[in-house]
Simulated assay, not measured.
Amino acid sequence: MKDLFDLTGKVALVTGGSRGIGRTIAGAFAEAGADVVIASRKADACVLAAKEISEATGRRALGLGCHVGKWDDCDALISRVYDEFGRCDVLVNNAGMSPKYHDLASITEDYYDKVSSVNLKGPFRLSAAIGTRMAAGEGGSIINVSTIGSTRPGANELVYACAKAGLNALTIGTAEAFGPTVRANAILPGSVMTDISHAWTPEFIEMVSDVPAGRPGQPEDFIGTALWLATAASAFVTGAIIRVDGGAFRQM
């Protein structure tokens, strides 16, 4: 049974991997035996996270700077991963951004393009290129980190929600495009206490705690789902959109 969750001999690439959910998932994959590549726009933070993971687990970890909203950066990242490791077995598209805006009418084209590029355009490029290589080789798993807001968008994060809804569609489409040896699934977090939550007011924290689980999420709450999706434990799961939100968007 333990072998179902084993990643020994595998290589995992995690974007947005220097902090929050991505950093936690990368560390968990290394604990499960994988070598990991951590990528984000802040190269120094990635290098530091990789060093910490390597020292803690004994696995090889590489930190690389990459702006996933730029396809040239994505292509350079892919080349570096395959040059260094010769393979990529797990791709986690976790990088995301959603700056605040005043109202919908004030959203600029630059804002729209920036948010859409990081949350959807980059994952599309990485999934298309790496998924093709996975399918031509030994297969693999693509895990997209979306949001519950993609299923019930609100006015305050609408561009982000639209892009993440596209990421959900990408998940379903790549499951068909690269199956049966490559699986693609999405995790939809609810409110999570990452570094961004430091700006939350006590009233907002109380509001997002009003879920059946009784609290907001923590990055560690995503380890089980991500490890399950990355390994043979979920061999018959693909094209799935999985809410990990403490029951916030529960359905009958």
Rank of each mutant, 00 (worst) to 15 (best):
M193G: 09
T201H: 02
S191R: 00
T151G: 11
G137V: 14
R183V: 02
N144F: 15
A136P: 05
K164W: 13
V192L: 00
T151L: 15
M134G: 01
A199F: 09
I148S: 10
A135N: 08
G179L: 03
I196Q: 10
T181W: 00
S150K: 02
V182Q: 00
G154H: 11
S141A: 14
G149I: 06
T171K: 07
R152Q: 10
A169H: 09
E138K: 12
V182M: 01
M193E: 13
H198E: 14
T147G: 05
A186T: 07
A161D: 15
R183M: 05
N185M: 07
S141D: 06
L170Y: 06
V145L: 07
A161Y: 11
M193K: 12
G154E: 07
G190C: 08
L158H: 04
S146I: 07
G166Q: 03
L158E: 01
W200M: 03
G173P: 06
T171H: 04
G139D: 14
T194D: 00
W200H: 00
T174I: 08
N168R: 05
F178V: 06
I130E: 01
L167D: 03
L188N: 12
I143Y: 11
R152F: 10
T174V: 11
D195G: 09
S146C: 14
L167C: 09
S146G: 08
G137K: 15
L158Q: 02
V159Y: 00
T151V: 15
D195T: 13
R133G: 10
T132D: 04
I142L: 05
T132S: 07
R152T: 11
T181N: 09
A136G: 08
V159L: 05
E176F: 13
